[in-house]
């Protein structure tokens, strides 16, 4: 039996209703966040939650931005950029070896590295904390780069190895006939051809690390070294009951990714979905 008119009609209604319902569920918390950020502390106590701000008051934004917020931002950019560049280089090198070279225990080593995806990072927290102190890196931006790179490697190596396995063997052979050794093959042929794989891991790890909290929380302690997720934490302690100010910080920290998202939604969605390769 073909679908009955009744069923089709319900379908026609159900689709937009459910679609808009979830849109509301998704956006209400964001609306609350943005709206509140424009209110004064006084206003947030006195007026209804859903009342529009009395004026487009940028006082909170002024307040936050005149503080050390930009330092957090700069630290985040620095840590994430350095980490992601290192991740791209290190994981693509390893992936090239796994995908293209034969050596003893190739598959065993690959399996071990990939298994690293399941390890809960919390078990490494205390030892890394102690190690960081011993190395004298505690409370510096560089303390974060090691753990960030290492925890991102398993999934990145996995993604890039799969990617490089797809590159035709003949290209490697053609390059060998053209006089390339393993290093030239890697840098002149494989790396340029791995663009899509590299952009996936850059996006995925970039977002993950931009939002990373626990390592940053444990390995840094002062405003000068902390990253954006810690800005929220620190401001929360500082402003205590000033909800609009705190939500302003939350809005501001979320802004960079939202802006990036506006420019490349499809790529970012695809990159984030790389997370489904864990497991």
């Amino acid at each position: 039996m073909a679908s009955s008119p009744v069923a089709r009609a319900t379908g026609r209604v159900a689709v937009p209703v459910l679609g808009l319902f979830w849109l509301a569920v998704t956006t209400v918390p964001f609306l609350f966040m943005v709206m509140t950020s424009f209110k004064s502390q006084q206003e947030s106590f006195s007026s209804s939650v859903w009342a529009l701000p009395e004026a487009l008051d940028l006082v909170n934004y002024n307040d936050v931005l005149s503080g050390p917020f930009l330092t957090y931002f700069k630290n985040s950019v620095m840590v994430v950029v350095i980490s992601v560049l290192l991740i791209m280089l290190i994981s693509s090198m390893a992936a090239f070896a796994f995908a293209r070279m034969r050596f003893r225990f190739n598959e065993a080593i690959f399996g071990l590295i990939v298994a690293g995806m399941i390890v809960p990072i919390h078990i490494t927290l205390v030892p890394i904390y102690l190690m960081t102190r011993q190395l004298g890196l505690y409370d510096s931006q560089f303390a974060l780069i090691g753990p960030y790179v290492a925890t991102s490697l398993p999934i990145s190596v996995f993604i890039l190895t799969e990617f490089m396995r797809q590159i035709p063997k003949e290209l490697e052979e053609a390059a060998r006939l053209d006089g390339c050794g393993p290093f030239a093959i890697f840098f002149k042929v494989f790396l340029p051809l791995s663009g899509p794989g590299l952009s996936t891991i850059a996006i995925y790890n970039g977002i993950m690390l931009w939002n990373e909290f626990i390592f940053a929380y444990v390995l840094t302690s002062s405003t000068g070294t902390r990253t954006l997720p810690l800005a929220i934490w620190d401001y929360q302690g500082q402003y205590t009951a000033n909800i609009p100010a705190i939500l302003t910080v939350v809005t501001l920290t979320s802004l960079p990714l939202v802006v990036a998202y506006a420019f490349g939604q499809e790529k970012i969605v695809k990159g984030m979905m790389a997370g489904s390769l864990k497991g």
């Binding site: 035709p168 003949e170 290209l171 052979e173 053609a174 006939l177 042929v189 340029p192 051809l193």
Partner: peptide, 12 residues
Amino acid sequence: AMVFQNYALYPH
């Protein structure tokens, strides 16, 4: 010098 079945031109 070798000419491959699938040409093996460097795509980039």
